[in-house]
Amino acid sequence: MSTARLTQAPRATRQLPARASLRSINLSGLTNSSSSRVVVATITLGAIAIAIFQLLLHIATSSSVYELAHLQTEKRDLTTTTQILGQQVDSLASQQNLANAAEKLGMISNANPVFLRLEDQRVFGKPKAALTADGRVSRNLVPNAAMVRSSVIVAPTSTVAEALAPVSGAAPQAAAFVPAKVNVANGSTAVSSVVSNSGGIPASPTH
């Protein structure tokens, strides 16, 4: 039987595709290594940490920028306030405003100045009351279109004493003056002396 089987014509052998040879790869070093997991975890966590840090930094920076923008706006507002107040001060200090205020207060520049020489107490010039008829110009004649504010002069009171009394109730404004209706050229007032705060003779600047 075995011979027959040996003499039997061989059947055509079925052509099977050559089977690729397989090689074994040991991945245990990659999958089971605890040190690899640490590396991967470190890298992942590090990246996340960096991302979060960057996000926080960005938020902080953005917040600072908005704060800076807010402060710059505030600075602009304050600069505008400074400008507005500066222009008001300039207006109040302008010669035109002072002249107008002086006129409303009844002040008249004396056209007849009298000079006292201290060394020999000699008087130069003839003392005269300051009157508007002296040719002095009390009304403002020099225009000023830049005036944005002027001094507020309240209505004249009847006496100097009243004028100098503290104003009760609602005070008009800080810049207001209270003129007396007394004609100082024709008589004495209740005010007996002039007090100089500086202790010296009130005088204009000299050179």
């Binding site: 222009q87 300039d90 302008s94 010669q95 020099v142 000023n144 279109a145 830049a146 005036m147």
Partner: peptide
């Protein structure tokens, strides 16, 4: 430009 004292 502003001229605080006007025509002075």
């Amino acid at each position: 430009r502003v001229y605080p004292n006007g025509a002075v």
